[in-house]
Each structure stands twice: as C-alpha cells, then as structure tokens.
Amino acid sequence: MSADSADAPTPPTTDSPAPSADSDLSGAPAPSEFVRLLRAQRVWDTELPDFAPVAAPAAPLPLFEQWFAEAVAAGQVEPHTMSLATADAGGLPDVRTVMLHGADREGWHFASHAGSRKGRHLAARPYAALGFYWPAQGRQIRVRGPVTVAPPEVAQADLHARSAGALASALVGRQSEVLDSYEELERASDTAWDRARREPDAPAPSWTVYVLAPDEVEFFQGDARRRHVRLTYRRREDGTWGRDLLWP
C-alpha cells in the first residue's frame, strides 16, 4: 500500500449495519424469550449418585432392576414410562412414550394395539429401541433389539391385570385411526367403560404384548463435571454379554 492510499479516508460501507435492538453487540440476533427461558433451565439440580462400572453385574437385567428400584426410592416420577422408537416399512423413524409392562430374561415387555401405528411398524420391521430417562438421578438407559409378539393369552392376562380404565381404553380400540370428532370418542369411551364394569374379563383381541429381546443395553450415569459414565452391554453370539465403556 502506498503512503497516499494509506492517508486516504475510508469510504463508508453498508455491509455492517449498527446492531439493532433485536441483536447483540456482535450483530447476531438477540435470543428470543423462548431461547432465554430454555437457557435458564437447570440440568440435574440435585446430588447425583456414583456409579462404578467395574462393580456392575455380568448381565444388564440385574443392573436395570437395581437402577429402577433406586429411581423409585429417589422419587422419580413415573419411572416405568419409556420412549419407544420404531421405523415404518420405508425406514422412517417414529417415537412415543409408552409404559413398561415387565422385564425378565425374555426381554423388556410393552403393549399396544396391533393395528396402531407402532403395531404396524413392528409388523413391518420387528426391531425397536427403548429409552428411559430418570433425571432425579441423572440416569438414562437405552435398550435395543428385535421384537417378538407374545401369545394372545399373555396379552389378555396382561390387560385384565390392569385397571378398569385400561380395559375400557383397550375396548375402544381404533388407536391411531383418524377421529372425526371428539364427541365420537366420548360416546365410544362411555360404551367401553360400561362394558368394562359389566365384563371385567371382556376380551380385546387387538391388544398385543411385545417383547424386546435386547442385543445392546447402555447405562448412562450423569456427572456434574460432565465426566459421564457410559457402560454398554452387547450380547455375544453364545448368549453371554460383553461390556465396554464409551466416551461421553
């Protein structure tokens, strides 16, 4: 650059407007009220338990049962609810919250109507993933594997072991179908409640129990210093379990 050009005045530019009331000093848009509210939320605002993976059992089920009992003792709200992820015939994913109905050596059990969206997904692609989140202790559990259908008698026994409301809901059926009006649901629900009270053993043929036999289970323990512990169990071909720690 020459001396003349160095002394020349810099022409004004229009590429960098002054920050407006809707932006910060960097020129970036100011956060919206929603974003401010979002950033103000606390994460794990409680004392988190320790987790020593070297002391974990050889199989995931005993550890799941232990963590579930500890979640209940810690006052975790609805620890038996979980996210269920499935995919349709084209591979598009979906997720919803459902209730755990049991966990044993066969797998993790849940139920729904065979004609529901999740039921259709599992008929087309019998593989799913489950996710438990227990913020009272900063814990997550992820389970995934193939899904099978339990015998009909198991499904009916499961249904009739639950409340009259659960039976009435099952008797309404038609889950995931288009509903023309809420009044139609009210009429069908009233009819189903009447039948559930009169016939506590009434069958709901579409009610189905599904069993996810895990081939992978991950236990996540949060840490206040972000040194989260992730312990993954993977089923070997001989049916035993291998264990690995994962970077958080």
Score class of each variant (00 low, 15 high):
Thr14Ser: 13
Val77Glu: 12
Leu171Tyr: 01
Trp108Ile: 05
Pro17Gly: 12
Ser32Ile: 10
Leu84Ser: 04
Arg243Met: 01
Val77Thr: 14
Arg227Trp: 08
Asp215Ser: 08
Gln137Phe: 09
Glu153Pro: 14
Gly75Val: 13
Tyr210Phe: 11
Val209Ile: 13
Ala129Leu: 06
Ala87His: 03
Val211Ile: 13
Ser116Arg: 03
Asp15Trp: 05
His80Phe: 09
Val54Trp: 05
Glu184Arg: 09
Ala89Gly: 10
Ala85Asp: 00
Leu159Tyr: 03
Ala150Phe: 04
Phe51Ile: 12
Met1Glu: 04
Arg42Val: 07
Ser20Leu: 07
Ile141Trp: 01
Val172Pro: 00
Glu183Gln: 09
Gln137His: 11
Arg226Leu: 14
Trp67Met: 13
Arg230Ile: 08
Val149Cys: 04
Ser20Thr: 13
Pro205Arg: 05
Gly91Ala: 05
Ala161Arg: 15
Lys118Val: 02
Arg234Ala: 10
Pro200Asp: 04
Val147Glu: 01
Ser2Asp: 08
Glu186Tyr: 04
Thr46His: 12
Val149Ala: 02
Ala89Pro: 07
Pro214Asn: 03
Arg139Asn: 07
Ala164Met: 12
Gly27Phe: 03
Ala129Phe: 04
Gly75Trp: 12
Pro151Trp: 04
Phe34Leu: 15
Glu65Arg: 14
Gln175Trp: 01
Ala124Pro: 13
Arg195Gln: 08
